[in-house]
Amino acid sequence: MSGIDSGRKLVVSFIEKNNIAHQDLATAYGKERVFVTNALSGKLKGASVNLFILEVIRDYKLRDEKEGEENGKTS
């Protein structure tokens, strides 16, 4: 699995846990809902999708739980 696929799964998990609709995320980032839906499902790929996923990860400081455990840190 590529690094961005891990990030995509992290973002999907975050929006599911926080009950955030794709439309809400799209509005917040100035994107079309279809773009967000396809980006998060993996149907769209490329630089713009990668940048969008990275932006969400940075803005919400999302981290994989396994990452923290490996470093001896707890969330």
Results as ranks from 00 to 15, higher is better:
residue 1 M to P: 05
residue 1 M to D: 07
residue 1 M to H: 10
residue 2 S to G: 03
residue 2 S to K: 15
residue 2 S to W: 06
residue 3 G to D: 14
residue 4 I to L: 05
residue 4 I to V: 12
residue 4 I to T: 12
residue 5 D to F: 02
residue 5 D to M: 11
residue 5 D to L: 06
residue 6 S to W: 00
residue 6 S to A: 14
residue 7 G to S: 09
residue 7 G to D: 09
residue 8 R to V: 07
residue 8 R to M: 05
residue 8 R to P: 01
residue 8 R to G: 03
residue 9 K to S: 09
residue 10 L to F: 01
residue 12 V to L: 10
residue 12 V to N: 08
residue 12 V to E: 05
residue 12 V to Y: 01
residue 13 S to I: 11
residue 14 F to W: 08
residue 14 F to H: 06
residue 14 F to K: 07
residue 14 F to P: 02
residue 15 I to S: 04
residue 15 I to D: 04
residue 15 I to Q: 03
residue 16 E to W: 00
residue 17 K to C: 05
residue 17 K to F: 02
residue 18 N to P: 05
residue 18 N to V: 11
residue 18 N to T: 13
residue 18 N to W: 02
residue 18 N to A: 05
residue 19 N to T: 10
residue 20 I to K: 04
residue 20 I to E: 02
residue 20 I to P: 01
residue 20 I to M: 07
residue 21 A to D: 04
residue 21 A to N: 03
residue 21 A to F: 02
residue 23 Q to N: 09
residue 23 Q to R: 14
residue 23 Q to C: 12
residue 24 D to S: 12
residue 24 D to C: 06
residue 25 L to M: 14
residue 26 A to E: 02
residue 26 A to N: 05
residue 26 A to T: 01
residue 27 T to Y: 08
residue 27 T to H: 12
residue 27 T to I: 11
residue 27 T to R: 14
residue 28 A to D: 10
residue 28 A to E: 12
residue 28 A to F: 01
residue 31 K to L: 10
residue 31 K to V: 04
residue 34 V to F: 03
residue 35 F to I: 06
residue 36 V to E: 05
residue 36 V to W: 00
residue 36 V to D: 02
residue 36 V to F: 00
residue 36 V to S: 03
residue 37 T to S: 11
residue 37 T to D: 09
residue 38 N to D: 10
residue 39 A to G: 03
residue 39 A to Q: 06
residue 39 A to H: 03
residue 39 A to F: 01
residue 39 A to M: 06
residue 40 L to V: 10
residue 41 S to L: 11
residue 42 G to R: 11
residue 42 G to H: 07
residue 42 G to Y: 04
residue 42 G to A: 09
residue 43 K to V: 12
residue 43 K to G: 07
residue 44 L to M: 11
residue 45 K to P: 00
residue 45 K to W: 00
residue 45 K to G: 08
residue 46 G to K: 12
residue 46 G to S: 07
residue 48 S to P: 01
residue 49 V to G: 03
residue 49 V to Y: 00
residue 49 V to I: 14
residue 50 N to T: 13
residue 51 L to A: 15
residue 51 L to Q: 13
residue 51 L to G: 08
residue 52 F to E: 07
residue 53 I to K: 09
residue 53 I to V: 14
residue 54 L to Y: 00
residue 54 L to E: 11
residue 54 L to P: 01
residue 55 E to Y: 02
residue 55 E to N: 13
residue 55 E to A: 14
residue 56 V to W: 01
residue 56 V to G: 02
residue 56 V to L: 07
residue 58 R to F: 00
residue 58 R to K: 15
residue 58 R to S: 12
residue 59 D to F: 04
residue 59 D to S: 11
residue 59 D to C: 08
residue 60 Y to A: 09
residue 60 Y to F: 15
residue 60 Y to Q: 15
residue 62 L to P: 04
residue 62 L to A: 06
residue 62 L to K: 07
residue 64 D to K: 10
residue 64 D to W: 00
residue 64 D to S: 11
residue 65 E to F: 03
residue 65 E to C: 13
residue 66 K to W: 03
residue 66 K to R: 14
residue 68 G to R: 14
residue 68 G to M: 13
residue 68 G to H: 11
residue 68 G to Y: 11
residue 69 E to S: 13
residue 69 E to L: 15
residue 70 E to C: 12
residue 71 N to C: 13
residue 71 N to Y: 04
residue 71 N to H: 10
residue 72 G to K: 08
residue 72 G to S: 04
residue 72 G to C: 04
residue 73 K to E: 05
residue 73 K to N: 10
residue 74 T to N: 12
residue 75 S to F: 09
residue 75 S to Y: 06
residue 75 S to N: 10
residue 75 S to A: 14
residue 75 S to C: 07
